[in-house]
Design a protein around this nucleic acid. Structure first.
Lengths: 280, 280
DNA sequence: CGAAGTATTGACGGGCGTCAATATCAGTGG
DNA sequence: CCACTGATATTGACGCCCGTCAATACTTCG
Protein backbone atom coordinates (compact mmCIF):
# COMPACT_ATOMS: atom_id res chain seq x y z
CA UNK A 1 0.00 0.00 0.00
CA UNK A 2 3.00 2.30 0.14
CA UNK A 3 3.34 4.29 -3.00
CA UNK A 4 6.28 5.97 -4.56
CA UNK A 5 5.14 9.49 -5.27
CA UNK A 6 6.99 11.90 -7.50
CA UNK A 7 5.02 15.09 -7.21
CA UNK A 8 7.11 17.70 -8.92
CA UNK A 9 5.40 20.82 -7.68
CA UNK A 10 2.33 21.20 -5.57
CA UNK A 11 2.58 24.66 -4.05
CA UNK A 12 -0.96 25.93 -4.22
CA UNK A 13 -1.18 25.79 -7.99
CA UNK A 14 -4.52 24.06 -8.03
CA UNK A 15 -6.57 27.21 -8.03
CA UNK A 16 -9.20 27.82 -10.64
CA UNK A 17 -7.39 30.75 -12.18
CA UNK A 18 -4.06 29.00 -12.59
CA UNK A 19 -5.55 25.87 -14.06
CA UNK A 20 -7.60 27.91 -16.49
CA UNK A 21 -4.43 29.68 -17.50
CA UNK A 22 -2.83 26.30 -17.99
CA UNK A 23 -5.66 25.30 -20.23
CA UNK A 24 -5.29 28.32 -22.48
CA UNK A 25 -1.52 27.97 -22.63
CA UNK A 26 -1.66 24.29 -23.33
CA UNK A 27 -4.36 24.67 -25.92
CA UNK A 28 -2.11 27.05 -27.81
CA UNK A 29 1.00 24.96 -27.42
CA UNK A 30 -0.29 21.49 -28.19
CA UNK A 31 -1.58 20.70 -31.64
CA UNK A 32 -4.02 17.84 -31.35
CA UNK A 33 -7.59 17.03 -32.06
CA UNK A 34 -8.82 16.28 -28.59
CA UNK A 35 -10.74 18.60 -26.29
CA UNK A 36 -8.44 21.30 -25.03
CA UNK A 37 -9.46 20.51 -21.50
CA UNK A 38 -8.07 17.03 -21.76
CA UNK A 39 -4.78 18.18 -23.11
CA UNK A 40 -4.62 20.59 -20.23
CA UNK A 41 -5.10 17.72 -17.83
CA UNK A 42 -1.94 15.96 -18.91
CA UNK A 43 -0.09 18.72 -20.65
CA UNK A 44 2.28 19.66 -17.88
CA UNK A 45 4.24 17.93 -15.18
CA UNK A 46 2.62 19.54 -12.18
CA UNK A 47 0.38 17.39 -9.98
CA UNK A 48 1.70 14.27 -11.58
CA UNK A 49 2.17 11.15 -9.52
CA UNK A 50 3.82 7.92 -10.49
CA UNK A 51 2.24 5.05 -8.64
CA UNK A 52 3.48 1.51 -8.16
CA UNK A 53 1.15 -1.45 -8.68
CA UNK A 54 -1.49 -2.09 -6.00
CA UNK A 55 -1.37 1.43 -4.69
CA UNK A 56 -4.51 2.93 -3.19
CA UNK A 57 -5.88 5.90 -5.10
CA UNK A 58 -9.39 6.45 -3.82
CA UNK A 59 -10.95 4.98 -0.71
CA UNK A 60 -14.73 5.02 -0.66
CA UNK A 61 -16.83 6.54 2.08
CA UNK A 62 -14.40 9.34 2.76
CA UNK A 63 -14.90 12.69 1.07
CA UNK A 64 -11.98 13.60 -1.13
CA UNK A 65 -10.97 16.78 -2.86
CA UNK A 66 -9.07 14.92 -5.55
CA UNK A 67 -9.97 13.90 -9.06
CA UNK A 68 -7.60 11.76 -11.06
CA UNK A 69 -6.64 11.71 -14.67
CA UNK A 70 -4.99 8.51 -15.87
CA UNK A 71 -2.00 9.14 -18.10
CA UNK A 72 -0.84 5.55 -18.17
CA UNK A 73 -1.51 2.24 -16.45
CA UNK A 74 -4.65 0.44 -15.41
CA UNK A 75 -6.76 1.07 -12.32
CA UNK A 76 -9.40 -1.11 -10.74
CA UNK A 77 -12.63 -0.24 -8.96
CA UNK A 78 -13.26 -2.87 -6.33
CA UNK A 79 -15.44 -3.99 -3.46
CA UNK A 80 -14.27 -5.68 -0.30
CA UNK A 81 -16.34 -7.64 2.18
CA UNK A 82 -15.04 -7.91 5.69
CA UNK A 83 -14.33 -11.59 5.22
CA UNK A 84 -11.87 -10.81 2.47
CA UNK A 85 -13.92 -11.54 -0.61
CA UNK A 86 -13.22 -9.05 -3.33
CA UNK A 87 -14.99 -8.18 -6.54
CA UNK A 88 -13.52 -5.90 -9.16
CA UNK A 89 -16.35 -3.78 -10.55
CA UNK A 90 -14.55 -2.05 -13.34
CA UNK A 91 -11.21 -1.18 -14.88
CA UNK A 92 -10.13 2.36 -15.63
CA UNK A 93 -7.86 3.04 -18.57
CA UNK A 94 -5.52 5.76 -19.82
CA UNK A 95 -7.32 8.91 -20.83
CA UNK A 96 -10.09 8.47 -18.31
CA UNK A 97 -11.02 10.67 -15.39
CA UNK A 98 -11.78 8.96 -12.08
CA UNK A 99 -13.34 10.29 -8.93
CA UNK A 100 -15.50 12.94 -10.48
CA UNK A 101 -18.82 11.36 -9.60
CA UNK A 102 -19.33 12.36 -5.97
CA UNK A 103 -18.13 9.88 -3.42
CA UNK A 104 -17.68 6.20 -3.80
CA UNK A 105 -19.53 4.17 -1.24
CA UNK A 106 -17.85 2.76 1.81
CA UNK A 107 -16.24 -0.56 1.01
CA UNK A 108 -15.50 0.55 -2.53
CA UNK A 109 -12.05 1.70 -3.50
CA UNK A 110 -9.84 2.43 -6.48
CA UNK A 111 -6.34 1.03 -6.73
CA UNK A 112 -3.71 0.72 -9.40
CA UNK A 113 -3.35 -2.66 -11.08
CA UNK A 114 -0.14 -1.84 -12.87
CA UNK A 115 2.38 0.89 -12.37
CA UNK A 116 0.53 4.02 -13.37
CA UNK A 117 1.06 7.64 -14.20
CA UNK A 118 -1.68 9.74 -12.64
CA UNK A 119 -2.48 13.40 -12.49
CA UNK A 120 -4.16 14.79 -9.41
CA UNK A 121 -6.70 17.55 -9.94
CA UNK A 122 -8.50 19.63 -7.36
CA UNK A 123 -12.22 19.06 -7.49
CA UNK A 124 -13.25 22.71 -7.32
CA UNK A 125 -10.73 23.70 -9.94
CA UNK A 126 -12.01 20.91 -12.14
CA UNK A 127 -15.59 22.02 -11.68
CA UNK A 128 -14.63 25.52 -12.62
CA UNK A 129 -12.92 24.36 -15.78
CA UNK A 130 -15.87 22.21 -16.61
CA UNK A 131 -18.19 25.18 -16.41
CA UNK A 132 -16.34 27.02 -19.10
CA UNK A 133 -15.43 24.11 -21.32
CA UNK A 134 -18.26 22.41 -23.15
CA UNK A 135 -15.94 20.07 -25.00
CA UNK A 136 -14.43 18.73 -21.82
CA UNK A 137 -17.86 18.30 -20.29
CA UNK A 138 -19.01 16.36 -23.33
CA UNK A 139 -15.92 14.16 -23.16
CA UNK A 140 -16.55 13.49 -19.50
CA UNK A 141 -20.15 12.61 -20.29
CA UNK A 142 -18.97 10.12 -22.91
CA UNK A 143 -16.55 8.58 -20.46
CA UNK A 144 -19.24 8.10 -17.85
CA UNK A 145 -21.42 6.47 -20.47
CA UNK A 146 -18.64 4.15 -21.58
CA UNK A 147 -17.84 3.18 -18.02
CA UNK A 148 -21.51 2.48 -17.37
CA UNK A 149 -21.69 0.33 -20.47
CA UNK A 150 -18.72 -1.67 -19.30
CA UNK A 151 -20.29 -2.15 -15.89
CA UNK A 152 -23.45 -3.33 -17.61
CA UNK A 153 -21.47 -5.88 -19.56
CA UNK A 154 -19.78 -7.17 -16.43
CA UNK A 155 -23.06 -7.47 -14.57
CA UNK A 156 -24.66 -9.18 -17.53
CA UNK A 157 -21.81 -11.62 -17.94
CA UNK A 158 -21.57 -12.43 -14.24
CA UNK A 159 -25.25 -13.26 -14.15
CA UNK A 160 -25.79 -14.89 -17.51
CA UNK A 161 -22.50 -16.34 -18.72
CA UNK A 162 -20.30 -19.18 -17.53
CA UNK A 163 -16.70 -18.56 -16.44
CA UNK A 164 -15.44 -19.92 -19.79
CA UNK A 165 -17.59 -17.51 -21.71
CA UNK A 166 -16.67 -14.58 -19.53
CA UNK A 167 -12.96 -15.25 -19.86
CA UNK A 168 -13.21 -15.70 -23.62
CA UNK A 169 -15.01 -12.39 -23.92
CA UNK A 170 -12.51 -10.72 -21.64
CA UNK A 171 -9.61 -11.99 -23.73
CA UNK A 172 -11.25 -10.76 -26.91
CA UNK A 173 -11.88 -7.34 -25.43
CA UNK A 174 -8.38 -7.19 -24.02
CA UNK A 175 -6.98 -7.09 -27.55
CA UNK A 176 -8.47 -3.62 -27.76
CA UNK A 177 -7.16 -2.03 -24.64
CA UNK A 178 -4.05 -3.97 -23.68
CA UNK A 179 -0.65 -3.99 -25.36
CA UNK A 180 -0.52 -6.38 -28.28
CA UNK A 181 1.79 -7.03 -31.19
CA UNK A 182 0.36 -8.07 -34.52
CA UNK A 183 2.23 -10.85 -36.28
CA UNK A 184 2.57 -11.19 -40.06
CA UNK A 185 0.23 -14.19 -40.12
CA UNK A 186 -2.66 -12.20 -38.76
CA UNK A 187 -2.44 -13.47 -35.21
CA UNK A 188 -1.47 -11.17 -32.38
CA UNK A 189 0.48 -11.48 -29.18
CA UNK A 190 -1.55 -10.11 -26.29
CA UNK A 191 0.36 -8.88 -23.29
CA UNK A 192 -1.92 -9.47 -20.33
CA UNK A 193 -1.48 -6.67 -17.81
CA UNK A 194 -3.59 -8.19 -15.05
CA UNK A 195 -2.28 -10.91 -12.75
CA UNK A 196 -4.44 -14.02 -12.42
CA UNK A 197 -5.94 -12.91 -9.13
CA UNK A 198 -7.29 -9.71 -10.68
CA UNK A 199 -8.72 -11.52 -13.66
CA UNK A 200 -10.40 -13.98 -11.32
CA UNK A 201 -11.85 -11.28 -9.08
CA UNK A 202 -13.04 -9.32 -12.08
CA UNK A 203 -14.77 -12.31 -13.66
CA UNK A 204 -16.17 -13.62 -10.40
CA UNK A 205 -14.25 -16.86 -10.29
CA UNK A 206 -10.95 -18.25 -8.97
CA UNK A 207 -7.39 -18.27 -10.21
CA UNK A 208 -7.53 -22.06 -10.58
CA UNK A 209 -10.54 -21.83 -12.85
CA UNK A 210 -8.84 -19.15 -14.92
CA UNK A 211 -5.82 -21.41 -15.35
CA UNK A 212 -7.95 -24.36 -16.36
CA UNK A 213 -9.93 -22.32 -18.90
CA UNK A 214 -6.66 -20.99 -20.21
CA UNK A 215 -5.38 -24.48 -20.77
CA UNK A 216 -8.63 -25.58 -22.39
CA UNK A 217 -8.48 -22.66 -24.80
CA UNK A 218 -4.92 -23.47 -25.77
CA UNK A 219 -5.72 -27.16 -26.21
CA UNK A 220 -8.58 -26.32 -28.53
CA UNK A 221 -6.28 -24.12 -30.58
CA UNK A 222 -7.93 -20.80 -29.92
CA UNK A 223 -4.93 -19.31 -28.20
CA UNK A 224 -1.32 -20.23 -27.58
CA UNK A 225 0.28 -19.60 -24.21
CA UNK A 226 3.73 -18.10 -24.70
CA UNK A 227 4.22 -17.42 -21.01
CA UNK A 228 1.87 -16.61 -18.13
CA UNK A 229 1.34 -13.05 -19.31
CA UNK A 230 1.61 -13.43 -23.07
CA UNK A 231 -1.05 -15.09 -25.16
CA UNK A 232 -1.01 -15.54 -28.90
CA UNK A 233 -4.53 -15.04 -30.18
CA UNK A 234 -4.99 -17.64 -32.91
CA UNK A 235 -8.72 -17.39 -33.50
CA UNK A 236 -10.28 -14.14 -32.41
CA UNK A 237 -13.57 -14.95 -34.11
CA UNK A 238 -13.89 -18.11 -32.07
CA UNK A 239 -13.02 -16.21 -28.93
CA UNK A 240 -15.76 -13.69 -29.61
CA UNK A 241 -18.25 -16.45 -30.36
CA UNK A 242 -17.39 -18.18 -27.10
CA UNK A 243 -17.80 -14.90 -25.28
CA UNK A 244 -21.23 -14.24 -26.77
CA UNK A 245 -20.04 -11.07 -28.43
CA UNK A 246 -22.48 -10.80 -31.28
CA UNK A 247 -22.39 -7.10 -31.99
CA UNK A 248 -18.71 -6.80 -32.77
CA UNK A 249 -15.82 -5.89 -30.54
CA UNK A 250 -15.96 -2.19 -31.22
CA UNK A 251 -19.32 -1.82 -29.59
CA UNK A 252 -18.00 -3.51 -26.47
CA UNK A 253 -15.01 -1.26 -26.02
CA UNK A 254 -16.49 1.96 -27.33
CA UNK A 255 -14.47 5.02 -26.53
CA UNK A 256 -11.39 3.20 -25.32
CA UNK A 257 -9.68 3.01 -28.67
CA UNK A 258 -10.22 6.65 -29.56
CA UNK A 259 -9.06 7.91 -26.20
CA UNK A 260 -5.97 5.76 -26.39
CA UNK A 261 -4.97 7.03 -29.82
CA UNK A 262 -5.59 10.64 -28.88
CA UNK A 263 -3.53 10.16 -25.78
CA UNK A 264 -0.67 8.64 -27.74
CA UNK A 265 -0.95 11.47 -30.20
CA UNK A 266 -0.49 13.87 -27.37
CA UNK A 267 2.11 12.17 -25.23
CA UNK A 268 3.81 9.84 -27.64
CA UNK A 269 3.60 6.04 -27.64
CA UNK A 270 6.62 5.84 -25.36
CA UNK A 271 4.70 7.38 -22.49
CA UNK A 272 3.88 4.00 -21.01
CA UNK A 273 0.22 3.97 -21.85
CA UNK A 274 -1.30 0.61 -22.65
CA UNK A 275 -0.75 0.66 -26.37
CA UNK A 276 -2.60 -1.73 -28.61
CA UNK A 277 -1.46 -2.06 -32.17
CA UNK A 278 -4.11 -4.51 -33.27
CA UNK A 279 -5.84 -3.71 -36.50
CA UNK A 280 -9.58 -3.37 -36.58
CA UNK B 1 -45.93 -6.56 -25.35
CA UNK B 2 -49.19 -4.76 -26.08
CA UNK B 3 -49.81 -2.00 -23.62
CA UNK B 4 -52.93 -0.28 -22.56
CA UNK B 5 -52.20 3.37 -22.87
CA UNK B 6 -54.38 6.07 -21.39
CA UNK B 7 -52.81 9.27 -22.56
CA UNK B 8 -55.26 11.96 -21.63
CA UNK B 9 -53.97 14.76 -23.80
CA UNK B 10 -50.97 14.83 -26.04
CA UNK B 11 -51.62 17.64 -28.50
CA UNK B 12 -48.25 19.24 -28.88
CA UNK B 13 -47.94 20.27 -25.25
CA UNK B 14 -44.39 19.03 -24.82
CA UNK B 15 -42.74 22.29 -25.77
CA UNK B 16 -40.23 23.94 -23.52
CA UNK B 17 -42.40 26.96 -22.87
CA UNK B 18 -45.49 25.04 -21.88
CA UNK B 19 -43.65 22.68 -19.60
CA UNK B 20 -41.90 25.57 -17.93
CA UNK B 21 -45.27 27.19 -17.40
CA UNK B 22 -46.47 23.92 -15.91
CA UNK B 23 -43.54 23.97 -13.56
CA UNK B 24 -44.29 27.45 -12.29
CA UNK B 25 -48.00 26.74 -11.95
CA UNK B 26 -47.46 23.44 -10.20
CA UNK B 27 -44.85 24.87 -7.91
CA UNK B 28 -47.37 27.42 -6.72
CA UNK B 29 -50.24 24.98 -6.44
CA UNK B 30 -48.58 22.01 -4.74
CA UNK B 31 -47.28 22.37 -1.21
CA UNK B 32 -44.51 19.90 -0.76
CA UNK B 33 -40.88 19.78 0.14
CA UNK B 34 -39.46 18.21 -2.99
CA UNK B 35 -37.77 19.97 -5.88
CA UNK B 36 -40.34 21.94 -7.85
CA UNK B 37 -39.19 20.26 -10.99
CA UNK B 38 -40.19 16.88 -9.70
CA UNK B 39 -43.63 18.01 -8.67
CA UNK B 40 -44.01 19.43 -12.14
CA UNK B 41 -43.17 16.07 -13.60
CA UNK B 42 -46.13 14.36 -12.00
CA UNK B 43 -48.33 17.26 -11.08
CA UNK B 44 -50.75 17.05 -13.97
CA UNK B 45 -52.42 14.37 -16.01
CA UNK B 46 -50.95 15.20 -19.36
CA UNK B 47 -48.40 12.81 -20.88
CA UNK B 48 -49.38 10.16 -18.42
CA UNK B 49 -49.44 6.56 -19.47
CA UNK B 50 -50.72 3.59 -17.58
CA UNK B 51 -48.77 0.50 -18.55
CA UNK B 52 -49.60 -3.14 -17.97
CA UNK B 53 -46.94 -5.52 -16.67
CA UNK B 54 -44.18 -6.61 -19.07
CA UNK B 55 -44.69 -3.64 -21.35
CA UNK B 56 -41.72 -2.29 -23.26
CA UNK B 57 -40.73 1.24 -22.31
CA UNK B 58 -37.28 1.82 -23.77
CA UNK B 59 -35.52 -0.31 -26.35
CA UNK B 60 -31.77 0.14 -26.44
CA UNK B 61 -29.80 1.02 -29.57
CA UNK B 62 -32.53 3.22 -30.97
CA UNK B 63 -32.44 6.97 -30.33
CA UNK B 64 -35.51 8.12 -28.46
CA UNK B 65 -36.91 11.51 -27.71
CA UNK B 66 -38.63 10.31 -24.58
CA UNK B 67 -37.67 10.45 -20.94
CA UNK B 68 -39.81 8.73 -18.35
CA UNK B 69 -40.82 9.63 -14.86
CA UNK B 70 -42.11 6.74 -12.76
CA UNK B 71 -45.19 7.64 -10.75
CA UNK B 72 -45.93 4.10 -9.63
CA UNK B 73 -44.86 0.54 -10.31
CA UNK B 74 -41.50 -1.10 -10.84
CA UNK B 75 -39.42 -1.14 -14.03
CA UNK B 76 -36.52 -3.36 -14.95
CA UNK B 77 -33.38 -2.68 -16.95
CA UNK B 78 -32.40 -5.87 -18.72
CA UNK B 79 -30.04 -7.49 -21.20
CA UNK B 80 -30.97 -10.14 -23.70
CA UNK B 81 -28.64 -12.49 -25.54
CA UNK B 82 -29.83 -13.91 -28.81
CA UNK B 83 -30.10 -17.36 -27.28
CA UNK B 84 -32.70 -16.10 -24.84
CA UNK B 85 -30.62 -15.67 -21.72
CA UNK B 86 -31.65 -12.60 -19.81
CA UNK B 87 -30.06 -10.62 -17.02
CA UNK B 88 -31.83 -7.89 -15.14
CA UNK B 89 -29.29 -5.15 -14.48
CA UNK B 90 -31.34 -2.90 -12.28
CA UNK B 91 -34.79 -2.02 -11.00
CA UNK B 92 -36.27 1.43 -11.29
CA UNK B 93 -38.67 2.65 -8.65
CA UNK B 94 -41.33 5.32 -8.18
CA UNK B 95 -39.94 8.84 -8.17
CA UNK B 96 -37.09 8.01 -10.50
CA UNK B 97 -36.36 9.36 -13.95
CA UNK B 98 -35.36 6.86 -16.62
CA UNK B 99 -33.91 7.38 -20.07
CA UNK B 100 -32.11 10.62 -19.38
CA UNK B 101 -28.60 9.26 -19.82
CA UNK B 102 -28.15 9.21 -23.58
CA UNK B 103 -28.99 5.98 -25.28
CA UNK B 104 -29.01 2.55 -23.84
CA UNK B 105 -26.89 0.09 -25.74
CA UNK B 106 -28.36 -2.34 -28.21
CA UNK B 107 -29.59 -5.45 -26.46
CA UNK B 108 -30.50 -3.45 -23.38
CA UNK B 109 -34.09 -2.48 -22.74
CA UNK B 110 -36.41 -1.18 -20.06
CA UNK B 111 -39.75 -2.85 -19.35
CA UNK B 112 -42.37 -2.68 -16.67
CA UNK B 113 -42.34 -5.44 -14.09
CA UNK B 114 -45.68 -4.55 -12.54
CA UNK B 115 -48.49 -2.38 -13.79
CA UNK B 116 -47.03 1.10 -13.75
CA UNK B 117 -48.00 4.72 -14.01
CA UNK B 118 -45.49 6.58 -16.14
CA UNK B 119 -45.11 10.10 -17.37
CA UNK B 120 -43.57 10.74 -20.76
CA UNK B 121 -41.36 13.80 -21.09
CA UNK B 122 -39.78 15.23 -24.21
CA UNK B 123 -36.01 15.17 -24.00
CA UNK B 124 -35.42 18.69 -25.23
CA UNK B 125 -38.08 20.08 -22.97
CA UNK B 126 -36.53 18.23 -20.07
CA UNK B 127 -33.09 19.59 -20.89
CA UNK B 128 -34.49 23.08 -20.99
CA UNK B 129 -36.12 22.69 -17.61
CA UNK B 130 -32.94 21.23 -16.23
CA UNK B 131 -30.98 24.25 -17.32
CA UNK B 132 -33.08 26.59 -15.23
CA UNK B 133 -33.69 24.34 -12.25
CA UNK B 134 -30.71 23.59 -10.06
CA UNK B 135 -32.76 21.63 -7.58
CA UNK B 136 -34.04 19.26 -10.21
CA UNK B 137 -30.57 18.80 -11.61
CA UNK B 138 -29.25 18.00 -8.15
CA UNK B 139 -32.05 15.49 -7.60
CA UNK B 140 -31.27 13.87 -10.92
CA UNK B 141 -27.62 13.68 -9.98
CA UNK B 142 -28.53 11.95 -6.73
CA UNK B 143 -30.71 9.50 -8.58
CA UNK B 144 -27.95 8.58 -10.99
CA UNK B 145 -25.62 8.05 -8.07
CA UNK B 146 -28.14 5.85 -6.26
CA UNK B 147 -28.75 3.80 -9.37
CA UNK B 148 -25.03 3.37 -9.87
CA UNK B 149 -24.65 2.26 -6.27
CA UNK B 150 -27.36 -0.34 -6.76
CA UNK B 151 -25.66 -1.59 -9.90
CA UNK B 152 -22.41 -1.84 -7.97
CA UNK B 153 -24.13 -3.92 -5.34
CA UNK B 154 -25.60 -6.26 -7.94
CA UNK B 155 -22.27 -6.71 -9.68
CA UNK B 156 -20.54 -7.28 -6.39
CA UNK B 157 -23.09 -9.82 -5.23
CA UNK B 158 -23.15 -11.68 -8.54
CA UNK B 159 -19.41 -12.05 -8.45
CA UNK B 160 -18.73 -12.60 -4.78
CA UNK B 161 -21.86 -13.99 -3.12
CA UNK B 162 -23.69 -17.29 -3.41
CA UNK B 163 -27.32 -17.43 -4.56
CA UNK B 164 -28.46 -17.90 -0.94
CA UNK B 165 -26.65 -14.81 0.15
CA UNK B 166 -27.89 -12.76 -2.78
CA UNK B 167 -31.48 -13.73 -2.19
CA UNK B 168 -31.25 -13.04 1.53
CA UNK B 169 -29.84 -9.60 0.82
CA UNK B 170 -32.49 -8.97 -1.79
CA UNK B 171 -35.25 -9.91 0.63
CA UNK B 172 -33.83 -7.63 3.29
CA UNK B 173 -33.57 -4.72 0.88
CA UNK B 174 -37.04 -5.42 -0.46
CA UNK B 175 -38.50 -4.45 2.90
CA UNK B 176 -37.42 -0.92 2.08
CA UNK B 177 -38.87 -0.49 -1.35
CA UNK B 178 -41.72 -2.97 -1.65
CA UNK B 179 -45.11 -2.89 0.04
CA UNK B 180 -45.02 -4.34 3.51
CA UNK B 181 -47.29 -4.37 6.52
CA UNK B 182 -45.78 -4.24 10.00
CA UNK B 183 -47.35 -6.58 12.52
CA UNK B 184 -47.71 -5.85 16.25
CA UNK B 185 -45.04 -8.41 17.13
CA UNK B 186 -42.39 -6.57 15.19
CA UNK B 187 -42.39 -8.84 12.18
CA UNK B 188 -43.58 -7.58 8.80
CA UNK B 189 -45.43 -9.04 5.87
CA UNK B 190 -43.54 -8.32 2.68
CA UNK B 191 -45.53 -8.26 -0.52
CA UNK B 192 -43.14 -9.40 -3.23
CA UNK B 193 -43.86 -7.54 -6.44
CA UNK B 194 -41.54 -9.53 -8.68
CA UNK B 195 -42.46 -12.92 -10.07
CA UNK B 196 -39.94 -15.71 -9.52
CA UNK B 197 -38.55 -15.43 -13.03
CA UNK B 198 -37.62 -11.79 -12.50
CA UNK B 199 -36.04 -12.49 -9.14
CA UNK B 200 -34.04 -15.30 -10.70
CA UNK B 201 -32.87 -13.21 -13.64
CA UNK B 202 -31.97 -10.34 -11.36
CA UNK B 203 -29.93 -12.51 -9.01
CA UNK B 204 -28.32 -14.53 -11.77
CA UNK B 205 -29.83 -17.87 -10.89
CA UNK B 206 -32.92 -19.96 -11.70
CA UNK B 207 -36.49 -20.04 -10.44
CA UNK B 208 -35.91 -23.51 -9.01
CA UNK B 209 -32.99 -22.30 -6.95
CA UNK B 210 -35.03 -19.36 -5.71
CA UNK B 211 -37.76 -21.72 -4.59
CA UNK B 212 -35.32 -23.98 -2.81
CA UNK B 213 -33.64 -21.11 -1.01
CA UNK B 214 -37.06 -19.82 -0.07
CA UNK B 215 -37.94 -23.13 1.50
CA UNK B 216 -34.62 -23.33 3.29
CA UNK B 217 -35.14 -19.88 4.77
CA UNK B 218 -38.60 -20.78 5.99
CA UNK B 219 -37.38 -24.07 7.46
CA UNK B 220 -34.69 -22.27 9.38
CA UNK B 221 -37.26 -19.85 10.76
CA UNK B 222 -36.00 -16.69 9.14
CA UNK B 223 -39.14 -16.13 7.12
CA UNK B 224 -42.59 -17.59 6.85
CA UNK B 225 -44.20 -18.15 3.47
CA UNK B 226 -47.80 -16.98 3.57
CA UNK B 227 -48.30 -17.48 -0.15
CA UNK B 228 -46.00 -17.28 -3.18
CA UNK B 229 -45.94 -13.50 -3.10
CA UNK B 230 -46.22 -12.78 0.62
CA UNK B 231 -43.41 -13.45 3.05
CA UNK B 232 -43.47 -12.80 6.75
CA UNK B 233 -40.07 -11.54 7.78
CA UNK B 234 -39.35 -13.15 11.13
CA UNK B 235 -35.68 -12.32 11.55
CA UNK B 236 -34.49 -9.36 9.54
CA UNK B 237 -31.16 -9.26 11.36
CA UNK B 238 -30.43 -12.81 10.30
CA UNK B 239 -31.46 -12.01 6.75
CA UNK B 240 -29.05 -9.10 6.65
CA UNK B 241 -26.28 -11.23 8.12
CA UNK B 242 -26.86 -13.91 5.52
CA UNK B 243 -26.82 -11.27 2.81
CA UNK B 244 -23.50 -9.81 3.98
CA UNK B 245 -25.07 -6.45 4.67
CA UNK B 246 -22.74 -5.07 7.27
CA UNK B 247 -23.26 -1.37 6.90
CA UNK B 248 -26.96 -1.29 7.63
CA UNK B 249 -29.90 -1.41 5.27
CA UNK B 250 -30.20 2.32 4.85
CA UNK B 251 -26.89 2.59 3.12
CA UNK B 252 -27.94 -0.06 0.65
CA UNK B 253 -31.19 1.59 -0.39
CA UNK B 254 -30.13 5.19 -0.08
CA UNK B 255 -32.49 7.62 -1.72
CA UNK B 256 -35.29 5.19 -2.30
CA UNK B 257 -37.02 5.78 1.00
CA UNK B 258 -36.92 9.55 0.80
CA UNK B 259 -38.17 9.66 -2.76
CA UNK B 260 -40.98 7.32 -1.90
CA UNK B 261 -42.18 9.39 1.03
CA UNK B 262 -41.98 12.62 -0.93
CA UNK B 263 -43.91 11.01 -3.73
CA UNK B 264 -46.60 9.83 -1.37
CA UNK B 265 -46.68 13.26 0.16
CA UNK B 266 -47.38 14.64 -3.26
CA UNK B 267 -49.73 12.10 -4.75
CA UNK B 268 -51.22 10.40 -1.71
CA UNK B 269 -50.56 6.84 -0.62
CA UNK B 270 -53.53 5.64 -2.70
CA UNK B 271 -51.73 6.51 -5.89
CA UNK B 272 -50.54 2.96 -6.35
CA UNK B 273 -46.88 3.54 -5.64
CA UNK B 274 -45.04 0.75 -3.93
CA UNK B 275 -45.62 1.86 -0.37
CA UNK B 276 -43.54 0.46 2.43
CA UNK B 277 -44.71 1.02 5.97
CA UNK B 278 -41.81 -0.64 7.68
CA UNK B 279 -40.22 1.28 10.49
CA UNK B 280 -36.55 2.07 10.41
C1' DC C 1 20.82 -20.54 -2.39
C1' DG C 2 16.70 -19.75 0.38
C1' DA C 3 12.36 -17.36 0.53
C1' DA C 4 8.38 -15.36 -1.11
C1' DG C 5 5.18 -14.59 -4.62
C1' DT C 6 2.73 -16.30 -8.62
C1' DA C 7 1.08 -19.76 -11.77
C1' DT C 8 -0.22 -24.41 -12.74
C1' DT C 9 -2.08 -29.02 -12.05
C1' DG C 10 -4.55 -32.69 -9.55
C1' DA C 11 -8.20 -34.66 -6.43
C1' DC C 12 -12.43 -34.22 -4.24
C1' DG C 13 -17.08 -32.92 -3.12
C1' DG C 14 -21.03 -30.00 -2.86
C1' DG C 15 -23.83 -26.52 -4.98
C1' DC C 16 -26.65 -25.48 -8.41
C1' DG C 17 -28.24 -25.84 -13.24
C1' DT C 18 -31.14 -28.86 -16.04
C1' DC C 19 -34.95 -31.69 -16.87
C1' DA C 20 -39.25 -33.49 -15.52
C1' DA C 21 -43.44 -34.06 -12.81
C1' DT C 22 -46.78 -32.08 -9.94
C1' DA C 23 -49.40 -28.45 -7.47
C1' DT C 24 -51.81 -24.25 -7.41
C1' DC C 25 -54.35 -20.62 -9.23
C1' DA C 26 -56.64 -17.25 -12.58
C1' DG C 27 -59.32 -16.81 -16.35
C1' DT C 28 -62.69 -18.54 -19.71
C1' DG C 29 -66.65 -20.62 -21.44
C1' DG C 30 -69.97 -24.33 -21.07
C1' DC D 1 -70.82 -25.06 -10.66
C1' DC D 2 -67.37 -27.58 -13.19
C1' DA D 3 -64.04 -28.62 -16.94
C1' DC D 4 -60.44 -26.86 -19.52
C1' DT D 5 -56.41 -24.13 -20.36
C1' DG D 6 -52.36 -21.65 -19.49
C1' DA D 7 -49.25 -19.45 -16.40
C1' DT D 8 -46.70 -19.74 -12.31
C1' DA D 9 -44.73 -22.02 -8.38
C1' DT D 10 -42.91 -25.99 -6.12
C1' DT D 11 -40.52 -30.35 -5.49
C1' DG D 12 -37.60 -34.25 -6.85
C1' DA D 13 -33.71 -36.65 -9.35
C1' DC D 14 -29.52 -36.42 -11.70
C1' DG D 15 -25.06 -34.90 -13.09
C1' DC D 16 -21.41 -31.78 -13.87
C1' DC D 17 -19.21 -27.59 -13.28
C1' DC D 18 -16.40 -25.22 -10.37
C1' DG D 19 -14.89 -23.90 -5.67
C1' DT D 20 -11.74 -25.66 -2.19
C1' DC D 21 -7.64 -27.67 -0.64
C1' DA D 22 -3.13 -29.30 -1.52
C1' DA D 23 1.10 -30.14 -3.98
C1' DT D 24 4.27 -28.68 -7.35
C1' DA D 25 6.68 -25.73 -10.92
C1' DC D 26 8.49 -21.30 -12.06
C1' DT D 27 10.14 -16.63 -11.41
C1' DT D 28 12.11 -12.95 -8.80
C1' DC D 29 13.74 -11.17 -5.13
C1' DG D 30 17.10 -10.79 -1.10
Amino acid sequence: MEYQSTVTDHSGEGTVASVLADMRQTARRVRCSLPTGTSMLCGNARHREDRAADSEVIVGGAPSRDIWFIRSGILRLQCHAYDGRRQILSLFLPGEVVGFEGEFREGVSVETVTQSGLCRIDRRAFDAILNGNDELRAELFRQKQDQLDRLHWLTWSLGALSPDERFAAFLAMSTRFMPCDPLPDGTTILSMQLPRADIADLLGTTVETICRINRKLSESGVIEIKDPSHFRILDLKQLMALGQIEGGLDRMVRGIVERRSRLDDLMGPASGSAVCNCGS
